[in-house]
């Protein structure tokens, strides 16, 4: 137990506050309490304003027809059926490419590399840069590589591949957290049974890490759904129903942006689409957080 007192507390001023300046101390305590409550209330009010606005304006135009109809008149009427299909295709491509890469990297980092070694630190830093990179920069990269060099053009495939690069670091982090939450005793038991590392991985670690792996997939899905800027110049913004992955198509996020910025009188439909997007993201996010809590509880219990 370390008993040395290493904080910056100046004992003179403590005495001044607690004995001589009692009233003064009470006043500043009160002011500070008001400040923290004020900050929280401000945030709550703005939050309700934002969510309430999307809910109230969005719910009016929302109907089953809206979900299943084609986009008519640049989105001023009709629905968003082709947009939903394009969104699903892009997200599916992104996850199908990112998932195996993310899982493999996560396994290597959490099970095979020493946790504090230089290699793992460099790897983690490169993921942090990837995670912090502006989405518009991913868009330019995707345009140069997938649209032009590989010749995919403006297509769902280009968009999905660009998003795969974007969601990788987030999926890897979730997978690492899931794997690290598996108790050491599981690995030791496997070693004691002379299992190979591959079979420990396959039969013990991966099944035990499933919550973390699902959380990673959902997190990637959320990121992909919310993305707009990276898709403007990779998947494009065609509103037709896509017939193959080589067709251009827009996601819900792009649809919201286009209606709000480029289509006069598109606000109502923009809000309806935004409402669908927000509800999807809130469901995904809550599931991820609950999975995270669950993983933490499991690792504490073991």
């Amino acid at each position: 137990m370390n008993l040395s007192f290493r904080t910056n507390v100046n004992t003179d001023s403590v005495r001044a506050t607690s004995l001589i300046g009692l009233r003064n101390g009470q006043l500043s305590d009160l002011l500070f309490t008001a400040a923290v409550w004020g900050a929280f209330l401000t945030v709550t009010v703005v939050f309700l304003w934002l969510v309430g606005d999307v809910l109230i304006r969005g719910v009016g135009a929302l109907s089953w027809d809206f979900v299943v109809s084609p986009v008519i008149d640049s989105g001023r009427s009709g629905g968003i059926a082709p947009v939903l299909v394009s969104t699903a295709c892009i997200v599916a491509v992104a996850l199908a490419v990112a998932f195996p890469l993310a899982l493999a990297s996560a396994i290597l980092i959490s099970e095979f590399l020493p946790r504090t070694g230089t290699v793992s630190r460099l790897v983690i830093v490169s993921f942090d840069v990837l995670a912090g990179m502006p989405s518009i920069v991913f868009g330019l990269f995707g345009n140069a590589l997938f649209n032009q060099l590989l010749g995919f053009g403006y297509s769902l495939l280009s968009g999905g591949l660009t998003l795969a690069c974007m969601v990788l670091p987030f999926m890897i982090k979730a997978n690492i957290d899931g794997l690290r939450a598996v108790p050491r005793s599981y690995r030791e038991a496997g070693d004691a049974l002379a299992m190979s590392r591959a079979s420990i991985l396959w039969h013990v670690l991966l099944p035990a890490a499933i919550p973390g792996i699902i959380a990673g997939v959902l997190l990637g899905m959320g990121r992909a759904l919310a993305e707009t800027a990276a898709l403007l110049f990779t998947s494009g913004y065609v509103t037709r129903m896509p017939e193959s992955l080589m067709d251009s198509g827009r996601t819900i996020s792009i649809h919201v942006y286009d209606l709000a910025m480029n289509v006069a009188g598109g606000d109502q439909m923009a809000y309806a689409s935004a409402l669908i997007l927000v509800v999807l993201l809130i469901i995904i996010n809550f599931t991820v957080v609950r999975l995270g809590d669950w993983i933490q509880r499991c690792s504490l219990r073991a």
């Binding site: 939050f47 919201v256 927000v278 996010n285």
Partner: peptide
């Protein structure tokens, strides 16, 4: 409070933009 912050963190940037614009 935790829920509010989680939802704000998950909100896509176009929705912030839409709210800002309108």
């Amino acid at each position: 409070g935790r829920r509010i912050i989680e939802v704000l963190a998950a909100m896509p940037s176009v929705v912030y933009g839409l709210w800002g614009l309108v």
